[in-house]
């Protein structure tokens, strides 16, 4: 079959909302875009474990400790599903991880901010998982089958994380003066970076249009960002916290909130590697990887020995 007729079949499937599956023909650029996006997404889950793991040992109650530990573990699971989904496109997990460790591959910049107080654990769950959900709910309908199916599993857990984070904030907001201040401070620091999670505005976004055409994405960055603001502002009000944006205002006509300008200079600066924790996060991942080297090597050597022993035994039998 000629490439043009294969392309036709592919486009027809996209049009008719039939999922693209691993063995089927797809344009190279579609494959590349997916590998980039899914592996970036996987890396975000893994690097995202670090700022939250930072508080596991110091969680204030046994209940919170166990919930946080389970949450961070969920994120590791998400990383696994996503690496597996990306591998169906013909790129190995090892290659993807090497790209993360060398700094070649990106991950969500939000994880380059520090978790300084316990309230940050609430804010991250509420805002960061909340923003992730906006994106991921949309991705449950993405055109690539394995990615869409991974997302369905992940979304259920993310919304649980979001509620858990919000509940931490609620508890703080109802607490002592110190606790309220802690919660407000965390919201102040995480609000704008959370809005940046949706990526550059539609005018600036270089991958957006093609991704929409392929139905990898179904909503633009700005649309998702607006959805997030509209969902989150009332939640903040409900618990008596204020959003750190003097320009935030309900727009009756649009039926949505108007909000202030995002500091894109800060965004690009963090993307480039200059966020407060970029170096620390990458160093931590590299350290874990290097220190795990002998373990992985030994596991492999042992598996080989076992296989040989088994072959020998089978021969005798």
């Amino acid at each position: 079959m000629s490439e043009s007729s294969m392309l036709e079949i592919f486009e027809e499937k996209i049009k008719r909302e039939i999922k693209i599956e691993p063995r089927e023909w797809m344009p190279d650029a579609y494959r590349k875009t997916l590998v980039r996006q899914i592996s970036q997404h996987a890396h975000s889950e893994i690097v995202g474990m670090l700022p939250e793991a930072n508080w596991i040992k110091r969680a204030p109650t046994m209940r919170r400790k166990v919930a946080l530990l389970a949450k961070v573990q969920d994120e590791a699971g998400h990383g696994l599903y996503l690496y597996s989904a990306a591998e169906t496109l013909g790129t190995s997990r090892k290659t993807m991880i090497d790209d993360l460790l060398s700094g070649k591959a990106k991950y969500s910049s939000i994880f380059n901010y520090p978790t300084i107080t316990w309230a940050d654990i609430g804010a991250v769950g509420w805002l960061v998982d909340g923003a992730a959900i906006m994106n991921q709910v949309m991705l449950c309908r993405t055109s690539y089958g394995p990615y869409a199916r991974a997302m369905v599993r992940i979304c259920k857990e993310e919304s649980f994380h979001q509620r858990q984070g919000y509940e931490i904030m609620l508890t703080l907001a109802q607490g002592s003066q110190e606790q309220k201040a802690m919660a407000q401070d965390a919201l102040n620091r995480w609000w704008w970076p959370s809005l940046m999670m949706f990526g550059p505005s539609d005018k600036e976004s270089k991958h957006s249009a093609q991704s929409m055409a392929w139905k990898i994405k179904r909503k633009s960055n700005d649309e998702l960002r607006q959805n997030f603001v509209d969902a989150t502002v009332p939640q903040a009000r409900l618990i008596g916290l204020s959003i750190p944006d003097p320009d935030l205002k309900w727009n009756e006509e649009r039926g949505a909130y108007d909000f202030g300008d995002i500091d894109w200079e800060e965004f690009w600066n963090v993307v480039k590697g200059n966020g407060p924790c970029n170096k620390q996060r990458l160093d931590d991942r590299n350290k874990a990887h290097e220190e795990g080297h002998w373990v992985r090597e030994a596991a492999l050597a042992f598996a080989e020995k076992q296989a040989k022993r088994k072959a020998k035994k089978d021969k005798v039998a």
């Binding site: 793991a53 961070v72 573990q73």
Partner: peptide, 17 residues
């Protein structure tokens, strides 16, 4: 729990946690 996020392999990170 100190291993969480720092395990030698992702699968082992999950198992330790």
């Amino acid at each position: 729990s100190e291993w969480c996020g720092h395990g030698p392999v992702l699968e082992q990170d999950i198992a330790l946690t």
